[in-house]
Simulated assay, not measured.
Amino acid sequence: MESAGDWCLIESDPGVFTELIKKFGVKGVQVEEMWTIDDGIFENLRPVHGLIFLFKYVQHEEPSNPVVTDDRIQKIYFAKQVINNACATQAVISLLLNCNHPDVDLGPELTKLKEFSMSFDPKMRGLTLSNSQTIRGAHNSMAQQTLFEFDRKLPTKDEDAYHFVGYTAIDGRVYELDGLREGPIDHGPVGADQDWLNVVRPIIIKRINTYTEGEVHFNLMAIVSDRKMIYERQIEELLNENNMLGMETDDVENEIRRLKMLIEYEDAKMFKYKQEMVRRRHNYLPFIITLLKVLAEEKKLVPLYEKAKERISKKCQKKLKV
């Protein structure tokens, strides 16, 4: 679609997705990476508003559960993906626009998008999203700096493609939001005493197990409430409780100290994310060329190459002996 322009590929990284959400103008949330899908993994991250799952895309794969095409589509924000490379942003936006948690402030851009396009069918929603200059600009600002420009080539038949989808609970049922489908995939109800995350865990595990043994190209991230905001709220509650009771205990002081340490950790993590984003966007090519010129002028380039070749050879020999 010409009017939507080019959309870049996005790295599956919690820092990238957290910065992307901030670029949309959304407040009160961040993205955390899940290193495992074991029971209890979400305990320290609640509330979890949605899961973003990256997997190797298989053409013509049929969904294991029914695709929603009835009246529910009017209440669930689902947008068809109508442009290449937009699946990461569509997964995130679909999860956010289906979230009604008080922690989540959508901001003016996504609020306007939801109000404007909620009455549209999924394809028209996808077209509206793809033509948003703000959303496309935020998406493309996450692109890594490329050292060299290559002519575009058509994807080959054997080339692996990867795809992002979202999982969330809406009105007591778990849905998979995949922009390449005709509608949300209904994965069934969440019991009255159940947590939706306990329902979705076996669904994701089953999906991973359908791939060949040794396949490791999966990534799972969670959209959660801003951790710093949560910890600050907990400190405020403890202080208010202390003021009402008129007494302080060692347990309360220790808990406040622990929460302050967690806040410091979150500040350090967000600072690291910003540094990594700067590095992703920085063009290191002039530095590399200058360094190679200096090394060549000082006649150090060939000796360094020979030394590196020798080290690689020794490592290979060591591995062969083992």
Rank of each mutant, 00 (worst) to 15 (best):
P108S: 02
M34C: 13
N100E: 11
M34S: 10
C87E: 02
Q81R: 04
H101R: 04
S64H: 05
L110S: 02
K80V: 04
L113E: 01
E115R: 09
T128R: 14
K80P: 08
A88S: 08
H60I: 13
E62M: 13
F116K: 15
T69F: 09
E61K: 15
L106T: 01
S64L: 10
L106Q: 00
F53Q: 09
P47A: 04
E33P: 04
T69G: 04
C87K: 05
T36G: 06
C99M: 01
N84K: 15
A91T: 11
A91E: 02
E109K: 15
Y77L: 07
S64P: 09
V82T: 04
A79V: 01
M34F: 14
L54R: 12
C87R: 04
V48R: 02
L51W: 05
Y57L: 14
F55L: 06
G50R: 08
L54D: 13
V31H: 01
R72E: 03
P47C: 04
F53G: 03
A79S: 11
T36W: 07
T111V: 02
N84S: 15
I83G: 05
E115D: 06
E62L: 14
Q74N: 14
D121C: 14
D121H: 15
I73S: 03
T111N: 06
D105M: 03
V92R: 07
L45T: 08
A86W: 11
W35I: 13
D71C: 09
L54C: 13
T36C: 07
D103R: 00
R46M: 07
L110H: 06
L96E: 06
A86E: 08
V104C: 01
C87L: 05
E61L: 11
Y57R: 12
F53T: 02
P122E: 08
R46E: 12
V48C: 08
T36Q: 07
Y77H: 01
D121G: 15
N98S: 00
L113R: 05
I41N: 10
S64V: 13
P63V: 02
M118H: 11
G50V: 08
N98W: 01
A88N: 09
P66K: 06
S117F: 07
H60P: 06
I83K: 11
V48Y: 12
T89H: 07
N100G: 07
L97Y: 00
G107R: 03
T69L: 09
D103V: 01
K123H: 12
E61M: 12
P102E: 10
V58D: 01
V92Y: 08
K56G: 12
R46K: 15
D105Y: 05
V68N: 01
P63D: 10
T36Y: 09
F78L: 05
L54M: 14
V104M: 01
N65R: 13
L97W: 00
P108N: 03
V82R: 00
D39G: 06
I73N: 03
P102G: 05
F116Y: 14
F120V: 03
Q81W: 03
S94C: 03
E62H: 09
I76W: 00
K75N: 13
T128V: 12
L96I: 02
F120N: 11
H49Q: 12
D105A: 05
D121S: 14
G107A: 01
V58W: 04
G40W: 05
A86S: 12
K56S: 11
A88W: 08
